[in-house]
Write a protein that binds this DNA or RNA. Structure first.
Length: 202
DNA sequence: AGCTCGATGTCT
DNA sequence: GACATCGAGCTA
């Protein structure tokens, strides 16, 4: 795999623009010599404004807290949080310092380290169930709270351009499981690759 | 210190 | 459709 890592300036745009741009790129978790990687097929943008409405679906909506601290950093850091006491979700912070925007990685297609992913997920053979959800992909790629607040320009967790990028059709929809967000539930900020079997829901 | 709940996944 | 499981965030 030729590494063509996204540099810091690739993360300075708004989450709503970077979320679709991440589709088709590879998310890489390097553990020592082991490479676990997945092709990003589904994302959601959080934070910022849509039609002059602030995003009440964002963790950062009510301001800076200890959990959401990395969301307020400049683009190019990881924000990993624990959900329901059992799973983790991985976000890529975007924008400028103080913007509090991030892109949730909701699904990937396994690319590298298949055996390791199967083991991490407790699954016996390659199937879409391996990485078709934000908690599942973190488990497969061995991403947990230890990977919170990592510099994506470092050498452990990062995004690369695949050298044989396929042409994709992008679909968009409202985001999953944010009914609590009075305004944000209507923002069309979920993006996914049309027809890809690893997308979490259609 | 106590209480509530969640950007989910798994099993029934 | 029930429920596991735990840290953050809020109230006091």
């Amino acid at each position: 795999m030729i590494e063509d890592k996204w540099p810091q300036h690739a993360y300075t745009a708004a989450a709503r623009d970077i979320a679709p741009a991440l589709l088709g790129r590879y998310l890489v978790h390097k553990i020592g010599e082991k490479i676990l990687a997945g092709r990003i097929v589904e994302t959601e943008a959080y934070g910022g404004m849509y039609r002059r409405q602030p995003d009440d679906g964002s963790h950062a909506f009510r301001g800076l807290t200890s959990r959401t601290e990395p969301m307020f950093w400049a683009g190019g850091w990881s924000y990993v949080y624990l959900i329901y006491g059992r799973y983790c979700c991985m976000n890529i912070v975007t924008g400028s310092k103080g913007d509090a925007q991030a892109v949730l990685i909701r699904a990937v297609e396994p690319v590298s380290g298949l055996d390791e992913m199967l083991k991490n997920r407790g699954v016996s053979s390659l199937c879409k169930n391996l990485t078709n959800g934000p908690g599942k992909l973190c488990q497969a790629l061995n991403i947990d709270l230890r990977q919170n607040k990592l510099d994506l320009c470092g050498d452990e967790l990062y995004v690369i351009e695949p050298n044989n990028a396929r042409r994709i059709c992008t679909c968009r929809s409202t985001r999953i499981n944010i009914d609590y967000a009075v305004k944000g539930k209507y923002f069309p900020w979920r993006f996914y690759i049309k027809g890809n079997p690893y997308v979490s829901r259609f």
